[in-house]
Every structure is written in structure tokens, then in C-alpha cells.
Amino acid sequence: MQNSHSGVNQLGGVFVNGRPLPDSTRQKIVELAHSGARPCDISRILQVSNGCVSKILGRYYETGSIRPRAIGGSKPRVATPEVVSKIAQYKRECPSIFAWEIRDRLLSEGVCTNDNIPSVSSINRVLRNLASEKQQMGADGMYDKLRMLNGQTGSWGTRPGWYPGTSVPGQPTQDGCQQQEGGGENTNSISSNGEDSDEAQMRLQLKRKLQRNRTSFTQEQIEALEKEFERTHYPDVFARERLAAKIDLPEARIQVWFSNRRAKWRREEKLRNQRRQASNTPSHIPISSSFSTSVYQPIPQPTTPVSSFTSGSMLGRTDTALTNTYSALPPMPSFTMANNLPMQPPVPSQTSSYSCMLPTSPSVNGRSYDTYTPPHMQTHMNSQPMGTSGTTSTGLISPGVSVPVQVPGSEPDMSQYWPRLQ
């Protein structure tokens, strides 16, 4: 039975679970980093996980050691009161100082060594604690504590007292930064006198190289990059290397530039699409467009005044059976039934097929058609009795279509119309 579990990581490298990497692998990681390889490249070359490479390099940059820390136990506290007071002093002298600059000053002034120097995250935590204590304490208590930490007896009751030896409130920041720059020169002199001055200088240079600022491109470089971006948004590694040799930039910087440029292009394309949609959409909808001609068919113009009344309900007709019959029939052209047409008796099958359309009241044959006459024609229609054979009435077949029909004066039988409509 094995005491430890061995495995293979996602890159194909072998590791022992819970145990640190061998010293030979750690040394190779540092050597590759000094030669300029990126952590992701080191991870692929040595088949070590990216997190492990970053952790080893980060500890090497901070402490200069590649040895693993002790497994188990607690780390001794490195942010001692003396170190905290120095950090507060540096922050007062130059409020814009960075944590890694404070760390360098602690090393250069001999406050800490490589073994007990606090990390950048520890210094940031100390600065946050100082800021929170400043908010919790009152103004007087804060000034007393700062005077105690600074070891001075001057008056701290006013704002300019934060910067000793100065009279203009805006000047101390520059003086403090100048003092810090002077301390940086002392850093070089002190570290050069040490035993491991060369190694420390190499480590600091490598650290500065990794902690780079934003790349500033010249106009020629920007023009070359934009020209390549117009050709393709995704250049391959050969195109990037050719462009890197042409404009004297690292291939990694060119790759990052193209990634950022593609993101910018997507944002601009989104804005262009929004403007295009806004320009195509009308600002207001016309009133006429809300009524579609496919839904509402136009009603033909009436030929006679009587045809303006298109349904039985508008003429005072309360018989719903006839109203439904007229509205359900398709529109037909106007025609006239003459008196000489043969009077065919209704076929029983045809009569039964339209039995649902006729009223059940037996008085329908005896009703006159003056009910369908509009009010303004009552006088004219009353002067001509319906009993004469020459009287013409208008029957409504569908809305908007008038059918003048000659009705025999002897017997106005409704059943004569249905064979004609089939």
C-alpha cells in the first residue's frame, strides 16, 4: 500500500499530492522566468500547473527564495509595531506611495530583511487598517496617535501638521516623493554593498519588468496595427511575429492590442446598429396606417339613396333571421326581375335548405315592403301603392349592394327569390 497518492495534472505532468515540487523543477521555473518566458509558457514547457508556477515565482520575487514554506503551523507575524509605524510614516510623507514602493524602502533602510519582509498584500492590509482606524477615531485622537508614531512633539492640530517642515499644504506631496526618490538612490547604494547585491538587483529588475506600465504606442505603430486590423481581426502567430519585427513591439503586446481592438470594434458596431435601427424607425405612426385595407374592405359607393341603408337594423327591421341572411350572402350585381318571367313554384328541397333563413311567422307573405323604405322617402312611396304591378321595390342582398326588384302586385311571395340566388 502506497503512503502517498501520485497523479497526472491537466498538462500531463506527474505530481505527488500534498508534497511540494522538487527543487530542480523550481530552479528551472526561475531560470525560464529570467530568460523572459511568460508564466503560461513555463507552465506548458515544464508541465506544471499555472497556479503552481505563479505561486513559486511570486514567492521568489518577494523573498528571493525558491524553497517551499513549512507545511503546517502558523507563519510568524511580520507586521510588527515597528514595521507598522514605518509604513504609516512613509504614507504620511508621500500619500500616493504604492505598497511595493513601501516594501522596497523597508528593505533599503534595513527595517526588514528578506526573511521577515511583509508581502505587498500585508502592507496593503496595514494601510487599510490605518485608514479604518482613522475613520473610527476622532480628529484629536487621530492626531495624537500619528504624533506618537512619528515621534515628534510638534502641533498636529492642523492639517499642514501632517507634513512636517512644510508650510504650503500643496507642497508636502512633492517633497515626500522627492525624499522617497532619494531613498531609492540609497536603495541602490545599500544593496550594492550587501553580499547578495547582484541577486537582489536582478530580482528587482525582473520584478519591475513584470510590473509594467501601460504600453505607449507611437503613431507609426498605431498606423501599422490599424492597417493589419483592417486586413483581418484575428491575425495568426506568423502575422503577429512579422508585425512585431516590423514595428519593434513584443508579440504578446500585439496580441493584447488586437484583443482590445476587437472589443472596441464590437462596441462601435453595436452603436452603429442602434443608430441604423433608430433612423429606419419613423418618429410617429401615421393615422391612416393604423387601418389596414386588408382588414377593412372598402364599401362601394351607393348608386341610389335607398342603398345607403345596408342592414335591417338601420331600417328599423327587427327580424334577425333576414338580417343574418342578407349579411351572409355574397355580393351580387344589380339585376331586375321582369313581370314576364315565369313564376316557378319553389322546389321543396330548395325551400327546406333555406328554411332556417325565413321567419317562422306566416304573415311574411302579407307584409308590405314599406318597412324598408327610409324616412325621407315615405311620402313618395305612399303616393304609389304597392298593389300595382309596376311598383318597384329595392331588396338588399349584402352591405353596400342594392338590387332593384320588380315585385308582382298580386302576391309578394318571398319564396320566388331563392331559386334565382343559387
Results as ranks from 00 to 15, higher is better:
Asn3His: 09
Asn3Ala: 10
His5Trp: 12
His5Arg: 06
Ser6Gly: 14
Ser6Lys: 07
Gly7Tyr: 08
Val8Met: 08
Asn9Pro: 00
Asn9Cys: 00
Gln10Cys: 11
Gln10Phe: 06
Leu11Glu: 04
Leu11Ala: 05
Leu11Trp: 09
Gly12Tyr: 02
Gly12Ile: 01
Gly12Ala: 03
Gly13Cys: 03
Gly13Ile: 01
Gly13Gln: 00
Val14Ser: 09
Val14Tyr: 08
Val14Trp: 11
Phe15Ile: 05
Phe15Ala: 03
Phe15Ser: 03
Val16Ser: 12
Val16Phe: 05
Asn17Thr: 05
Gly18Ala: 01
Arg19Val: 08
Pro20Gly: 01
Pro20Met: 01
Leu21Ile: 06
Leu21Arg: 02
Pro22Val: 05
Pro22Met: 07
Asp23Val: 09
Ser24Tyr: 14
Ser24Thr: 14
Ser24Phe: 15
Thr25His: 08
Thr25Ile: 11
Gln27Asp: 05
Lys28Gln: 09
Lys28Phe: 08
Val30Thr: 08
Val30Leu: 08
Glu31Thr: 13
Glu31Ala: 11
Glu31Arg: 12
Leu32Asn: 03
Ala33Ile: 04
Ala33Gln: 12
Ala33Trp: 09
Ala33Lys: 07
His34Ile: 07
Ser35Asp: 15
Ser35Gly: 15
Ser35Val: 15
Gly36Pro: 01
Gly36Ala: 07
Gly36Trp: 04
Gly36Asn: 14
Pro39Val: 05
Pro39Leu: 13
Pro39Ala: 15
Cys40Gln: 14
Cys40Ser: 14
Asp41Lys: 14
Asp41Ser: 15
Ile42Gln: 01
Ser43Gln: 03
Arg44Leu: 06
Arg44Gly: 04
Arg44Met: 06
Ile45Val: 11
Leu46Ile: 11
Gln47Cys: 05
Val48Gln: 03
Val48Arg: 03
Val48Leu: 04
Ser49Glu: 01
Ser49Thr: 06
Ser49Ala: 02
Ser49Leu: 03
Asn50Tyr: 07
Gly51Arg: 15
Cys52Leu: 02
Cys52Val: 08
Cys52Lys: 01
Val53Trp: 00
Ser54Met: 04
Ser54Phe: 05
Leu57Val: 03
Gly58Asp: 14
Arg59Ile: 08
Arg59Cys: 04
Arg59Ala: 04
Tyr61Gln: 10
Tyr61Lys: 05
Glu62Val: 14
Gly64Arg: 06
Ser65Cys: 15
Ser65Gly: 05
Ser65Leu: 12
Ile66Pro: 05
Arg67Asn: 13
Arg67Cys: 12
Pro68Arg: 00
Pro68Met: 02
Arg69Glu: 04
Arg69Met: 09
Ala70Tyr: 08
Ile71Leu: 07
Gly72His: 00
Gly72Ser: 00
Gly72Phe: 01
Gly72Met: 00
Gly72Cys: 01
Gly73Arg: 00
Gly73Gln: 00
Gly73Asn: 00
Gly73Lys: 00
Ser74Pro: 00
Ser74Gln: 03
Ser74Glu: 02
Lys75Gln: 08
Pro76Asn: 03
Pro76Val: 09
Pro76Arg: 05
Arg77Glu: 02
Arg77Ile: 05
Val78Ser: 04
Val78Asn: 03
Val78Cys: 05
Ala79Trp: 01
Ala79Ser: 05
Ala79Phe: 05
Thr80Met: 05
Thr80Lys: 11
Pro81Gln: 13
Pro81Thr: 14
Pro81Ser: 11
Pro81Glu: 15
Glu82Pro: 07
Glu82Asn: 08
Val83Trp: 02
Val84Ile: 12
Val84Ala: 06
Ser85Trp: 13
Ser85Val: 12
Lys86His: 08
Lys86Arg: 08
Ile87Gln: 03
Ile87Gly: 00
Ile87Trp: 00
Ala88Thr: 15
Ala88Trp: 00
Ala88Arg: 07
Tyr90Pro: 01
Tyr90Leu: 10
Tyr90Lys: 08
Tyr90Trp: 13
Lys91Ala: 00
Lys91Cys: 04
Lys91Arg: 10
Lys91Pro: 03
Arg92Leu: 13
Arg92Ser: 12
Glu93Met: 12
Ser96Thr: 08
Ser96Glu: 12
Ser96Tyr: 15
Ile97Asp: 10
Phe98Gly: 03
Phe98Asn: 04
Ala99Leu: 03
Ala99Met: 05
Ala99Phe: 02
Trp100Ser: 08
Trp100Asp: 03
Glu101His: 13
Glu101Met: 05
Ile102Lys: 03
Ile102Asp: 01
Arg103Ala: 14
Arg103Asn: 06
Leu106Phe: 05
Leu106His: 00
Leu107Asn: 08
Leu107Met: 09
Ser108Asn: 11
Ser108Leu: 13
Ser108Arg: 10
Ser108Tyr: 12
Ser108Ile: 10
Glu109Asp: 12
Glu109Lys: 11
Glu109Ile: 11
Glu109Cys: 11
Gly110Tyr: 15
Gly110Lys: 08
Val111Asp: 14
Thr113Leu: 11
Thr113Cys: 11
Thr113Phe: 10
Asn114Tyr: 13
Asn114Pro: 11
Asp115Met: 14
Asn116Gly: 12
Ile117His: 14
Ile117Asn: 07
Pro118Trp: 02
Pro118Asp: 00
Pro118Gln: 03
Ser119Val: 03
Ser119Arg: 04
Ser119Lys: 02
Ser119Ala: 06
Ser119Thr: 03
Ser121Val: 00
Ile123Lys: 03
Ile123Tyr: 01
Asn124Cys: 07
Asn124Gln: 00
Val126Ile: 15
Leu127Glu: 08
Arg128Lys: 09
Asn129Ser: 12
Ser132Thr: 11
Ser132Ala: 13
Glu133Leu: 11
Lys134Glu: 15
Gln135Tyr: 14
Gln136Asp: 09
Gln136Thr: 10
Met137Lys: 11
Met137Leu: 10
Met137Ser: 09
Gly138Lys: 06
Gly138Phe: 12
Gly138Gln: 07
Ala139Ser: 10
Ala139Cys: 13
Ala139Arg: 09
Ala139Gly: 14
Asp140Gln: 09
Gly141Val: 09
Gly141Thr: 12
Met142Leu: 13
Met142His: 06
Tyr143Lys: 10
Tyr143Leu: 13
Tyr143Cys: 12
Asp144Val: 13
Asp144Gln: 11
Asp144Ser: 08
Lys145Arg: 08
Lys145Cys: 12
Lys145Tyr: 07
Lys145Thr: 10
Leu146Asn: 06
Arg147Phe: 09
Arg147Gln: 14
Leu149Thr: 06
Asn150Lys: 14
Asn150Asp: 08
